[in-house]
Computed example of a mutant assay.
Amino acid sequence: MKKSMVNCGVILLLLVSVSLTGCSKTEPVKEEMPRVRSQVVNLAASGQEAAYSGEVRGRYETQLAFQVSGKILKRSVELGSVVNSGDVLMEIDAKDITQTVTITSAQVASAQSQLSLAEANLARYRKLYEEGAVSHMQLDQFQNAYEVALANARQATAQYTQGANQLGYSTLLAESAGVISGIHAEAGQVVSAGQPVITLVTDGEREIEIHVPENRIDEMRNARQVRVSFWALPGVTVEGTVREVSPVADKVARTYKVRISLINPPPDIQLGMTASVAVADSSGQQAVYIPLTAIYQTGDTPNVWVINDGIVSLRPVKAGVFGDGRIQILEGLQQGDVIVTAGVQKLREGQKVRQ
């Protein structure tokens, strides 16, 4: 009995030992091969084309305003109206100005009457002086009275002319043929002298207005090629030239306004159209532009992951300007290099990846 129990215990221990031995076996861990997004470096495309959205504007845009203050009585144009030189655009209440003109007109009549009287008196006393009936001092008094009356008449006439001009200023006229692109005041509104009320775009040359960040200003000034396309005109591309770069940045957006002149624009281009301006860099420096997501920063050094035979390695690069989600690489990459453009933070040196 005891021997049988001992044999059973020995067999049980053997089974447990075999079981534990089997559990201690470890299967080899498969190396993780993450899938990454990649891009082939092409130095032939070194001339970057930065794209900017803009708007079709007129070469000459005039902010029209009344030269006198008053309440607007009538607006004769609508947004987009085509006008000719001399057309009436707005009118303001001229009642007070008319009263001023009436007053100055009466002052002119009074001054002319005083001048006529002074002139007659001077002629009479000059004759009396020649006959020896009056002294030279009396003649000088009437000569002075005449000169004062003449000055008063000239002053009254000038005031009347000024009032008449102001009466004419109560009507706002188009200074040239063009299109109304902005209306900034309505009938019933009281405006001050010089306050812009209408924007008039003069007929003629059309331009594109864009806004450029400060790190692209030099590139814009030296642009070797500017191409303009239009959202509303598929397939239409127009060559352009940089005509004007604002020397001062916008206080809010901190961008610089740039005007692009169009070369031989088609007649279908209308004011306010949305335009896309592609500017080719003329620096001549060999470089490539890659997505910002491809940069792996270690300290102060930018790096990129380069794929070679399915294995990634970290390579330091020299970065240039950046914008629009891309960054310029000046040194560190060669033609045909394959780089990782997404998921760079999850990689390690020598890791295998799938593309």
Rank of each mutant, 00 (worst) to 15 (best):
K3Y: 15
C8K: 14
V10T: 12
L15V: 15
S24I: 05
K30L: 12
R37P: 00
S38H: 11
Q39D: 01
N42L: 08
G47D: 15
G47V: 08
Y52N: 08
Y52A: 09
G54M: 11
G54P: 13
G58E: 02
A65G: 06
F66W: 01
F66V: 05
V68C: 03
S69M: 01
G70T: 04
L73V: 11
K74E: 15
S76G: 00
V82A: 13
S85F: 00
D87E: 10
D93H: 02
Q99F: 04
Q99E: 12
T100A: 13
A106F: 13
V108R: 12
S110R: 03
A111Y: 03
Q112T: 11
L115I: 00
L122C: 03
L122M: 11
R124P: 02
G132L: 05
V148I: 12
V148Y: 02
A149M: 07
A151V: 06
L167K: 12
Y169M: 04
L172V: 05
S176D: 07
G188C: 02
V190I: 08
G194F: 11
E209N: 08
R216W: 10
Q225L: 08
V226P: 01
R227H: 10
W231C: 00
W231F: 04
L233R: 05
V238T: 09
P247I: 02
D250K: 07
A253L: 08
Y256W: 10
S261A: 15
L262Q: 02
P266A: 01
I269Q: 02
S276T: 06
A280N: 04
S282E: 09
A287S: 14
G299L: 07
T301V: 15
P302V: 07
I311S: 05
L314K: 12
L314W: 04
R315M: 06
G320D: 06
G325F: 05
G325A: 11
G332E: 09
L333V: 09
Q334E: 14
Q334K: 11
Q335A: 03
G336A: 09
A342Q: 15
G343I: 06
V344Y: 09
K346I: 05
K346E: 04
L347C: 12
R348V: 14
G350I: 12
